[in-house]
Design a protein around this nucleic acid. Structure first.
Lengths: 236, 236
DNA sequence: AATTTAAACTTGTATATACAAGTTGATGTT
DNA sequence: AACATCAACTTGTATATACAAGTTTAAATT
């Protein structure tokens, strides 16, 4: 497929990358909109559309008369993002262990969410991961994705990459919204064993239904988190 | 002060109000962009800017070739919003009890967040609220706001209105971003008593630092939630 | 020297225009 | 009747232009 990104998205991707890679650091001013126009050979409305997106996602803040100031921290996926947590900790200290490798399953519901007939027919890609921070298991997440035109997904390695980065770069799928429910609970025995905690230990549970730019593709995710040492952190 | 809102914001406010008041319901199509142009006597880029905002906040979804589809549910304040929970439950079933009325206090930190010298000097407006759903206490929140040019705030009644609605309509202050930490914990004795639960009962804790469009004004909020029957719910 | 003023930046708002691309329904054709 | 085509919608992208409004810097004035 061709699928050339629109210019404002191209500029957005470049600036976003530069911020993440440290070309621009927190507190820095981006080049002015007119300079960006010259650099990328587009007009100001196009540049402003790219910048609007960076503002919405929390990468920059704008101040009239002054410029675009780099915030640095990514917004994450709407709410609290594990990737946000990841980046806050530094990747080298985080280990991902696949408990259940991506496999095809039948389903008729996704956690506390109901699914459509279409989703039921497609079946779901299912996997479980345990995230270990400095030797301590902190996150356990279960993900369900309807098996709709995601070639070679089952053979992808999820250890070191963010699911959403894979979807974005490999399949051009972006998160457009979603809903979530958050509980404080005590995990079951399986979870107590995975987290190595006693019965009755408080655990955070997060059920998410994540809508994407591909119509019909909704991702369902359930995350358990031991917040003893590491809180679930996010910017918005 | 004059402070006439820009046209795109005026259109945004009108459409937002109409969605919330049920002029347009979930699943409905908004008038097309060209029709909205005619209605509000502005050009399409202006209308599109208003719609962009509604999309970002989750009020509508757009589909090329079709139109703008009303989602209905508000996005809330970036993350999970109590107002979102409120609206999901229906206001009549929610009772707010003021535990500590808004008062001026000294402070040198806000929960797990540190504060600036300027904020420290200004002192803080402090209040505590308990939210009761169908007779069951579910939320307990503590709020700290630096006392910076918020006339008559101390005499406002917070029982029936959202704090953020007050800030937006009365002081033209909007939330621009923030950060938060979420824990699963067991509440202290005060909280056990407020929630009427046993010791060791899992409770959700949420520390939020909320930045606003008024420079220097950051709101600090700590929320405890008993998620036995009602999960913290939010869309994004 | 201190203050005021103005110029030269910055982002914010708004218009007018053009064409691309997706959706829908009506009109033909088979 | 079923299908294909087309026209008339819809939103998406992009340009060119203009002026308003906030910030900073430098020049002019006191």
């Amino acid at each position: 497929m061709d699928s050339t990104l629109p210019q404002y998205k191209q500029v957005y991707e470049i600036l976003r990358k530069h911020i993440l890679e440290g070309v621009y650091n927190e507190g820095d001013l981006l080049p002015s909109e007119n300079e960006l126009c010259a650099i990328h050979k587009v007009t100001r409305p196009t540049i402003r559309k790219a910048l609007d997106r960076l503002v919405n996602e929390g990468y920059i803040k704008k101040q009239q008369g002054k410029g675009s100031i780099v915030s640095g921290k990514p917004k994450g996926v709407g709410i609290l993002s594990l990737s946000g947590t990841t980046s806050a900790l530094g990747d080298e200290k985080l280990v991902t262990k696949i408990i259940v490798k991506p496999e095809l399953r039948q389903w008729d519901h996704a956690f506390s969410f109901s699914i459509t007939e279409q989703e039921k027919e497609a079946g779901c890609i299912y996997f479980e991961r345990l995230r270990i921070v400095n030797g301590k298991p902190v996150f356990f997440d279960t993900t369900m994705i309807p098996n709709l035109n995601l070639p070679r997904f089952l053979s992808l390695k999820l250890e070191n990459k963010s699911l959403f980065d894979i979807l974005r770069t490999r399949y051009q799928i972006e998160v457009t919204g979603g809903e979530q429910k958050i509980f404080a609970t005590t995990g079951d025995k399986k979870l107590q064993k995975l987290f190595n905690v006693n019965a009755g230990h408080p655990v955070l549970q997060l059920d998410r239904k994540i809508e994407t730019s591909r119509i019909g593709l909704t991702i369902y995710s359930q995350v358990f988190c031991n917040t003893d040492e590491y809180a679930l952190y996010g910017t918005f």
